[in-house]
Design a protein around this nucleic acid. Structure first.
Length: 859
RNA sequence: GCGAAGGUGGCGGAACUGGCAGACGCGCUGGACUUAGGAUCCAGUGGGGGAAACCCCUUGGGGGUUCAACUCCCCCCCUUCGCACCA
């Protein structure tokens, strides 16, 4: 018998799919669409097991949906602008462009070798001028909508990467890429006004029913809405300080005010030059220290009294004004009312500087707080006319008072801030703006796009200035408005801009006259299944949602949300080694157990997500060369539930390979069975068993695919099917061919999304002419998913003591109530049951149809 | 500190709205076929007791509800991941 020759089979079918253009798709007026998208990769050399898992998840859905009759859009491309290309280029002295496109070529080859069913005609890289032309167009669109603006701002700067970072890219005060501490610098920067959409971004989370809850929570936290009040405190001697508080009810306990060091009033208010100096020192200090050290719990609170006072509008007392490092300028108004009795931070600060503490909210009237600070809600004391009110009532009453006196009102604040777009780096999309001496800031004309990234350039990072500024050819241009001499904006865009709209372009990549043809987008979008890692839960997804909404308001789109269904897959982990001085050490370089090859330091071993930078990648080829890519695909799906991370281990792979071989042997023993016309109606008991196995499996696999990517159990069900079929076939020769044909064909169809090459070959061997890409997915008959004979366990006092064999009526209904009574009689005649009931008194019998019979006795 | 997810054999993991815990796979043990097998096939495999029939125990720990609990309730422990001076 022919053996399972995966090498030839795989290349054969990959060629056929290519020649037959199996996966190319166009909008159709008759077929319903399904848009399956995996997050496209950053092309950093090659694909590893983590990518394989991600793309296979999508591929299974895509292939399944095709068989269900959907017109499936399944595209792929490359997120190819960004830092690593530059870093690699500097390190290896290759141009980022060459490095990037070499990478892309290699990765594409790998993708094809895996048999991913992409429409490669739609492929693009975000660094293609044909694509970034439209990214620039998008920027101009936002600019015209008033959603892009420039601002001198304190920005997060990473000294290691030599670039400005968005707030989202600062993780606990460190750079998201290299972990260096981030410092603050002042620079004129481009921002996108994502805050115009804060409320929509928040409230539309409600309609994303098919998104994982935790991702929505993360976005909610990031947007960070909090309800409170803004209150003006009049300054003694004129002026006022506005604060934001979520605890208006505690305002009688506000015994001092605190300004952030950067607050403009911090330098204006004090009259004493000594204090001014001290404040300047404090400002510098808080700018230079990273926002928060990764593991350090807290920066010690430091403050300076300005020797100025404000009136508490409620108590009308004079309270001191201070400046302190624990108040953030970016949040709220940059100033707070301090209520030490009911806020831990204020309490700590008050103790240190000996400021008054006044308890104003108690848990129950007539009691006192057990311990201060106490940030719980309760009832007011020491609060004048508000005494005795609950926190809630008091807040409303106090707000009325504020409104009357025009001193404030209830309001909400958000943590979300505008998206800092500018990057002082080379390998990115040039921002299409021009500075004219006469006209000022002028957008590049649409017909002059793209503003090409110059290739001959020294792209080493130089800190606060983009490398583009060193290219005279790029820099000097004429003004689009007056034609006079002008120079270009030299900053490039954050690469999240590139990935914030790529899913739209996939729906319509063939036009070079507009970013996309609306009619095509109307058909294919939104994305039905979006699959990728949780690491993009905030940044990429929030930006994409924002861009979708902005384009929608501009009339370009007619849907609210770009991704209807989101699936976050668990990462593939592998052992990695870490040296405190030499960072990640590739496992292949670790010879002496756990010692750094460079310095001999002891290495830290940990499980990490596979990534090139950690050196712990395993390539798909290590499996496909030995077992074939179908085995590799199936293994990453079988090893663990799709949403869970798992540690890569090669040991388990052979199990899948053995299984595919069993499938091969089983199916090839029925060559050309498809050519015969046969009735699949069962003729005998064995036929019925086979029929039952078949339909039970169809049901299970279908539901597992539909129900949240439960591919691991779907594959287990297929294994069970094969095991059971083999057992029956080997012990019987009375099986009807029609029933067998149905079983074997179903098996091949069911396995095809997972192991498409094998399935195609077997389908052909069975005698079919056409590729099974568009074969109909099998449908189970409800009649045949339940076995006729049911074995019911009998429990006595909670322990299984016997089993009762019951025959189902008409395959559907098990029994009616009368028969339930009969079963009770029956079970009391059972020998084993009688044995265990000896000397006991039966208190009750419970019959759960299809499940169990439970007897309990008096105890 | 706050929030979320999770803890089941030697390992990865199954178990639908409470109904036979350990599906499926790896590994391991024994056997068959073999010059050989790291190929294939068959059998066994949670722990303990017993010659056996069988019996007892077992889903992080402790309590509870129920005829019946991995599943529900209360308390505690541990792990992972988010957020973290956000007023």
């Amino acid at each position: 018998m022919e053996h399972y020759d995966f090498k030839n089979i795989e290349s054969k079918w990959q060629k056929i799919w290519e020649v037959q253009k199996s996966f190319e798709v166009e909008p159709s007026s008759t077929k319903p669409k399904c848009y399956v998208l995996e997050m496209f990769p950053y092309p950093s050399g090659y694909l590893h097991m983590g990518h394989l898992k991600n793309y296979t998840l999508g591929d299974v859905v895509a292939r399944y949906k095709r068989m269900q009759g959907y017109n499936v859009l399944h595209p792929m491309g490359f997120d190819s602008f960004g830092l690593p290309a530059e870093n690699a280029a500097i390190k290896n002295k290759i141009h980022p462009k060459k490095w990037t496109y070499d990478s892309i070529a290699h990765i594409k080859k790998q993708m094809k070798a895996v048999g991913l069913s992409y429409d490669f005609r739609r492929e693009f890289a975000t660094s293609d001028p044909e694509y970034y032309k439209w990214t620039q167009w998008l920027f101009l669109f936002l600019y015209k909508q008033g959603l892009a603006y420039q601002k001198e701002a304190l920005v997060n700067f990473c000294p290691q990467c030599q670039t400005v970072l968005a707030n989202e890219q600062v993780i606990a005060g460190s750079c998201w890429r290299c972990d260096s501490k981030v410092v603050k610098n002042s620079l004129k920067q481009w921002f996108l006004k994502i805050t115009s959409y804060t409320e929509e971004l928040l409230s539309d989370l409600e309609i994303l029913n098919e998104w994982p809850e935790h991702v929505k929570t993360m976005q909610k936290n990031w947007i960070g809405k909090s309800y409170g009040a803004q209150v003006s405190f009049p300054i003694v001697g004129g002026g006022e300080i506005e604060v934001f508080t979520t605890r208006l009810d505690t305002i009688y306990g506000a015994t001092f005010l605190v300004l952030a060091p950067e607050h403009p009033l911090a330098l204006e208010l004090p009259q004493d030059p000594e204090i001014k100096e001290a404040i300047k020192t404090l400002i510098n200090k808080s700018l230079l220290t990273p926002e928060i050290e990764r593991s350090a719990e807290e920066i010690p609170k430091e403050g300076i009294f300005l020797r100025r006072y404000a009136f508490n509008p409620f108590t009308e007392e004079k309270i001191p004004i201070l400046v302190a490092n624990y108040v953030l300028y970016e949040y709220g108004t940059g100033a707070i009312m301090a209520v030490p009795a009911h806020d831990t931070r204020d309490y700590e600060f008050a103790l240190k500087y000996n400021l008054p503490i006044r308890e104003v909210v108690v848990p129950q009237l007539g009691t006192r707080c057990e311990e201060l600070p106490d940030d719980g809600y309760g009832y007011l004391i020491n609060s004048g006319p508000y005494d005795g009110l609950s926190s809630e009532e008091a807040t409303l009453k106090m707000a009325e008072f504020l409104q009357e006196k025009l001193l404030g009102k209830l309001t909400a604040r958000y943590k979300l801030r505008d998206w800092l777009l500018s990057r002082q780096r080379y390998w990115g999309v040039p921002i299409p703006m021009v500075y004219c001496q006469k006209c000022g800031l002028v957008p590049v004309k649409e017909e002059d796009l793209p503003v090409l990234l110059p290739e001959e350039i020294d792209f080493t990072p130089r800190g606060m200035v983009s490398p583009l500024a060193t290219s005279d050819e790029f820099l000097h241009t004429s003004c689009p408005q007056c034609g006079g001499s002008a120079h270009r904006e030299t900053d490039t865009m954050d690469t999240f801009m590139c990935s914030s709209w790529y899913y739209l372009r996939f729906g319509s990549p063939f036009t070079n006259r507009e970013p996309f043809i609306k009619k095509d987008i109307d058909y294919f979008l939104p994305v039905d299944y979006y699959i990728g890692g949780v690491e993009h839960a905030i940044l990429h997804l929030l930006y994409s949602r924002f861009i979708t909404k902005a384009l929608g308001d501009g009339g370009y789109l007619n849907f609210q949300e770009p991704f209807s269904r989101l699936f976050t897959q668990g990462m593939v982990l592998h052992t990695a080694f870490w040296c405190p001085t030499h960072y990640w050490i590739a496992p292949k370089d670790v010879k002496e157990e756990k010692y750094c090859p460079h310095c001999g330091m002891e290495l830290t071993t940990s499980l990490e997500a596979m990534s090139k930078s950690k050196g712990n990648v395993v390539l798909p080829e290590t499996i496909s060369h030995k077992y074939g890519t179908d085995t590799g695909r199936m293994y990453v799906l079988f090893a663990a539930p799709a949403e869970r991370e798992f540690e890569w281990k090669e040991e388990g792979v052979s199990g899948i390979f053995r299984f595919l071989n069993r499938v091969w042997k089983l199916v090839t023993s029925y060559q050309d069975i498809a050519l015969k016309e046969m009735n699949s109606h069962p003729q005998n008991k064995e036929d019925e068993s086979v029929k039952f196995i078949t339909h039970k499996t169809i049901k299970k696999v279908t539901q597992d695919i539909e129900n949240n990517f439960r591919f691991n159990t779907a594959i287990a069900a297929l294994m069970e099917m094969v095991n059971d079929l083999k057992a029956i076939i080997e012990s019987n020769n009375s099986l009807s061919e029609g029933v067998l044909k149905e079983a074997v064909e179903s098996l091949v169809l069911l396995i095809s999304p997972f192991a498409p090459h094998l399935a195609e070959e077997l389908w052909e061997k069975l005698g079919h002419q056409n590729s099974l890409t568009f074969q109909k997915w099998p449908i189970y008959e409800e009649n045949w998913v339940k076995e006729e004979v049911v074995e019911m366990p009998v429990q006595i006092d909670g322990k299984v003591r016997s089993k009762l064999i019951v025959v189902r009526k008409d395959r559907t209904l098990l029994w009616d109530v009368k028969e339930e009574e009969k079963l009770k009689e029956l079970v009391l005649q059972d020998e084993k049951v009688l044995k265990f009931l000896k000397g006991k008194k039966v208190k009750g019998i419970i019959v759960v149809p299809e499940k169990i019979i439970s007897i309990h006795t008096e105890r």
